[in-house]
Design a protein around this nucleic acid. Structure first.
Length: 291
DNA sequence: CCTTGTGTTCTCCG
DNA sequence: CCGGAGAACACAAG
């Protein structure tokens, strides 16, 4: 499940590969992953260069360099949903372990929906088995509208303890649902929400505006600590997630509660991790040490 | 049946 | 009755 650390890892990897590269052609296999009309999507991209690669929450933003005479600045947005992948293959890489990137058959794979071919050899593939993810071309105004929906960037300088505290002050919802809501804090998904609350020793059921100042501080610090550690470990891989090079992350080895329902708590010798459902999401926590 | 990120729709409350 | 908050649901496929 790509959350902030996974998207950040992909962003960094892709920037190394495709910054300033010229897109020669774009092939769209399955139109359901494209939010624009196919022809408009292709026209906005082919013949253009990638100006920058940015991330906001779980969304990737590629600036498409304007050509002389073009009226509008375009941006390519990519959301990976649950199972989306963005993988780059150059001449020195092999595709899906064995095939050469030159082998056309290798990217007519059934879950590979968009292929970007770059000048001087190299392809970027957008694949998504469940097709919850999508790509979209927007102009400056469209980008602004999209960005308006995002809350604080948890590893950014605006995410201060006072800012986080004022966010929780009047919220009647439970703290886990709040952490998952991208309008408040952007980039946290189910895995890191559970890990953050375990680290902070706060129960996911607690109502946000009932939390004590010390508890809020603990959650705030846990958000930064857990996300930074996960970025340093190149994300968490269970099944689908891979980085821009097709490599797995390693943070799954460091998870303390997510997916451990029924197993022993790593902090309490004789307590078991509970598994409940909050906001429609599976939630693991220790009733002994998370109050 | 389970899994989850996101977008939409429904419901509740003041 | 309006607006907003929060919850519930829909989606897809393994």
């Amino acid at each position: 499940m790509p959350e902030l650390p996974e998207i950040e890892t992909i962003k960094t990897g892709l920037a190394e590969k495709i910054l300033n590269r010229l897109i020669l052609s774009v092939e769209v296999g399955n139109e359901s992953v494209i939010r624009n009309r196919k022809q408009n999507f292709i026209a906005a991209l082919s013949g253009h260069r990638i100006g920058s690669v940015e991330r906001r929450g779980k969304m990737l933003i590629f600036e498409i360099k304007q050509l002389p005479g073009e009226k509008k600045q375009h941006h390519l947005l990519a959301r990976l949903g649950m199972t989306g992948r963005l993988v780059y293959f150059g001449p020195e890489d092999t595709l899906w372990g064995s095939q050469s990137f030159k082998d056309k058959k290798s990217f007519t794979h059934k879950h590979c929906h968009v292929v970007f071919t770059f000048q001087k050899e190299g392809v970027l593939l957008f694949c998504d088995t469940r097709r919850f993810g999508y790509m979209e071309i927007v102009d400056d105004q469209g980008l602004e509208e999209k960005l308006r929906g995002f809350g604080l960037e948890p590893l950014g300088k605006d995410f201060t303890l006072p800012a986080f505290r004022s966010l929780l002050g009047n919220k009647k919802t439970n703290i886990k649902a709040l952490l998952l809501n991208q309008r408040y804090v952007a980039g946290i998904g189910n895995i890191y929400a559970d890990e953050i609350l375990f680290e902070a020793r706060v129960s996911p059921c607690r109502q946000a505006d009932d939390l004590a100042p010390e508890e809020i501080k603990n959650i705030y610090q846990a958000i930064r600590k857990v996300l930074k550690q996960a970025v340093a470990n190149r994300g968490t891989t269970f099944s689908d997630y891979v980085d821009a090079d097709g490599n797995r992350g390693s943070f799954q080895k460091r998870l303390k509660v997510y997916g451990r329902g029924g197993e022993g708590c790593l902090r309490c010798p004789d307590a078991k991790i509970s598994k409940i459902r909050i906001g429609g999401r599976g939630t693991c926590f220790c009733e002994r040490c998370q109050k």
